[in-house]
Design a protein around this nucleic acid. Structure first.
Lengths: 135, 135
DNA sequence: GAGTGTTGGTCTCAAAAAGAGACTAACACT
DNA sequence: AGTGTTAGTCTCTTTTTGAGACCAACACTC
């Protein structure tokens, strides 16, 4: 091994990380589910007020009913939102955020705010990267 | 329309939301890229110290080389990490977090902490949901 | 009373993304 | 000469996602 110079330092931190339990990692378990393409968007909407299925579909025009159903069910399963069926005809269904969901959305909204504030920087970085790619 | 009772209130907030520009939404543009299955995990590692390609692969045993390459390139493109090639033989490549990456990781780490703290609640919610599903 | 619209989904099929694993070149060490 | 290392790419299969048809039951219109 010739490259020890770059790999040898910080053995202790390395051990620290290999202690990550990849199979039962809370972070992966939780994040994998809220990191879907639509999850954040739906949490963002339901953080404002409850919405009905059809309202959400109209609010996010490019989501398919299939993914809307599935993402809402996943969010409900993990306890972030509640689903209530009203026995009207045709039945209407309302989704609303739970306390757990609101508690998650608090730190999550900070990341969303970061995205708004730093959007220009990210786009600039992308342009630099794409420009240097053509070389 | 018979269901006006449920849909009529809060017209102003509704307008607020339909003002979301779905096509050029900063939140979607930024979040869609860091919300991949592996992005958060890699940012978490590189927040600690720089790592080389092979180190990251060993650190996250269940990532394929293909997805590791691709996710690292995406994170680099958006300006969160830097890639440096050392002209050793065989060449070694080091990935390190940029200032922009660190600034993103600050709020992001709060969500990660939330995940650790509330993991039990989420698992409990899942079990309740799955139990009520069999009905 | 036939036609149209509304509700919240499910079902099927096509397209896109992700995972598994073989393969590469150039050198070090045995 | 044979094995191991590096950071990838390439191909093939499996999984995930998207597009759209379809559903039942009722309200309203003509």
């Amino acid at each position: 091994m010739v490259l020890n110079k770059t790999t040898s330092p910080l053995k202790s931190e390395e051990l620290d990380i290999s202690a990550w339990d990849m199979d039962n990692c809370p972070v992966r378990d939780v994040i994998d589910r809220i990191s879907g393409k639509w999850s954040t968007l739906l949490l963002e909407a339901l953080a404002i007020r409850p919405y009905r299925f059809g309202e959400l579909r109209r609010l996010i025009p490019d989501i398919s009913q299939r993914m809307l159903t599935q993402t809402l069910r996943d969010l409900q399963r993990d306890g972030y939102i509640e689903r209530e069926v009203f026995p009207t005809k045709p039945p209407s269904v309302e989704y609303r955020m739970t306390d757990l969901g609101r508690s998650l959305f608090e730190p999550l909204s900070k990341v969303l705010q970061w995205a708004v504030v730093n959007h220009a920087d990210v786009k600039a970085a992308r342009e630099r990267f794409d420009a240097s790619e053509l070389a």
